[in-house]
């Protein structure tokens, strides 16, 4: 019998993974619905293409490398959906295909599959798409709703939108990110199903609030602009790429918030969340190392 070593968390039974991923999909549903309501059919198409590409891509890769095809654990579907939600509704469909494949093959598959990657696949794919085809990801669409406002996103035009608009999402932006109300519903679902804990989303959001405020932005507007809430709930909390201890998670959240503020203020990219979380993903192994939980029953040696 081949013994397979993995680090915690040990979620490898397709049943358990499937249940977890099912919860995530459920939590994503409000955002997906909101996205379609606000942006219409293009949003639905992009999300569908993204999911299909991710699932098909993973199935093909697993076939190609002689593994059991495990797409029914739904992890690829989740990756695809999250990626789709990170796109501008005006993005061409092939962008979703490229992104989906990049995520499941390069960022996840080449490293061994579920649990073996060190970057969040959807986020890394989004970064790749952003760097490769910037204009497709930064051309926005006006929302369809009646009292919609067209024009630059809140990140580019902070004073152009009321907090109410930012919260409900009648604004230009990425499909899944705009409706913060839906994100919060999703957050509650994830908490209630015990899929995630509050530490990362809360620390990330608060940290962004504080640091953006310190750097001269309206803190509440900063948190409600762009993908901060969506990312903090659905992307930063990816088990595989975030620290395992609560102390580590708090460090991770604070670090991400700081980076978001710095990138938004001084960097080239208006968003910042994508890269901030990716950078924290990279730092996660180190964070884990230095915030190890004391194993139960182990006592520190008495100092001589």
């Amino acid at each position: 019998m081949k013994l397979h070593l993995t680090p915690a968390p040990h979620v490898h039974s397709p049943q358990t993974t499937r249940a977890l991923m099912g919860n995530v999909l459920l939590a994503l549903a409000p955002c997906a619905v909101a996205g379609v309501v606000i942006f219409g059919a293009p949003a639905l198409v992009l999300m569908a293409v993204s999911v299909l590409s991710a699932v098909a891509g993973e199935a093909c890769w697993q076939r190609l490398t002689g593994q059991k095809v495990r797409v029914n654990d739904l992890s690829a579907a989740v990756t695809g959906l999250i990626l789709g939600m990170n796109l501008s509704p005006r993005a061409p469909w092939w962008l979703a295909v490229v992104g989906g494949l990049f995520a499941v093959v390069l960022v996840k598959g080449l490293f061994g599959g579920l649990g073996d990657n060190f970057l969040n696949p959807a986020l890394a794919a989004r970064a790749f798409l952003l760097v490769s085809w910037p204009r497709y990801l930064t051309t926005w669409a006006a929302p369809l709703a009646a009292d919609a406002v067209s024009g630059a996103t809140p990140l580019a035009n902070p004073s152009g939108y009321t907090l109410g608009q930012l919260f409900l999402g009648n604004i230009p932006g990425s499909i899944g990110e705009v409706c913060k109300a839906a994100v919060l519903v999703g957050f509650v679902i994830l908490l209630c199903t015990k899929t995630i804990t509050w530490h990362i989303p809360v620390s990330l959001t608060l940290s962004t609030l504080v640091f953006c405020g310190l750097l001269g932005y309206n803190p509440i507007a900063a948190v409600l602009s762009g993908g901060v809430l969506f990312a903090s709930v659905f992307m930063a909390t990816d088990y595989v790429t975030c620290p395992m201890s609560t102390k580590g998670q708090l460090v991770y959240g604070v670090g991400a918030g700081l980076l978001i503020a710095l990138i938004r203020k001084f960097g080239l990219y208006p968003e910042g969340v994508t890269f901030a979380i990716l950078l924290m993903n990279v730092a996660t192994p180190l964070i884990d190392r230095y915030t190890k939980r004391r194993v139960y029953g182990y006592e520190k040696e008495a100092k001589a």
Partner: peptide
């Protein structure tokens, strides 16, 4: 083409994949 391949990140990825 995909201009990002000309960036350092792209270089790493292409070389890594080709090696593999």
């Amino acid at each position: 083409g995909i201009p990002s391949i000309a960036l350092p990140a792209g270089g790493f990825l292409v070389l890594g994949v080709l090696m593999g």
